[in-house]
């Protein structure tokens, strides 16, 4: 089994773990971490597929794309977290399955 396959399949697994966390976990922080892990998994698949070159030198185009993606991911995380903090400040909730008090149907 060649190196790239180990990382490509592992990346797919990490991506699906992140997807599950993003969909199923209720806490905002777990969702944000899950989104980050999804991104990391996809980056891993991309770079692993770029390693299939005959001479073993990783394709620079996926590398540049992933480098771009990492910076965009940190922007996503910061924006998501500041929205989450604002939500917490306004409602006192950190669990997205609960309705905030203002719309609990009273």
């Amino acid at each position: 089994m060649s190196t790239y396959l180990i990382y490509a399949v592992g990346g797919a697994l990490i991506f699906s773990i992140g997807t599950y966390a993003l969909l199923a976990q209720r806490h905002i922080m777990h969702k944000v971490i899950g989104a980050n892990i999804m991104g990391s998994g996809i980056f891993m698949v991309l770079i692993a597929l770029g390693k299939r070159t005959p001479d073993g030198v990783t394709d620079p185009v996926p590398q540049a794309m992933v480098l771009t993606g990492i910076v965009v991911t940190v922007a996503l995380t910061a924006l998501g977290l500041s929205i989450a903090k604002r939500y917490y400040t306004l409602t006192g909730l950190d669990d997205l399955d609960q309705d905030p008090p203002a719309c609990d149907g009273r």
């Binding site: 922080m29 390693k51 590398q63 977290l81």
Partner: peptide
């Protein structure tokens, strides 16, 4: 995987900046 450029960025951003942001949110 033969991409030291990405490794450098990941170490500084993924482990450093994102960790600081997440810890701050947990503290909040």
């Amino acid at each position: 995987l033969g991409s030291p450029d990405v490794a450098l960025a990941e170490a500084a951003i993924g482990a450093g900046v994102t960790g600081a942001l997440l810890l701050d949110a947990v503290g909040h």
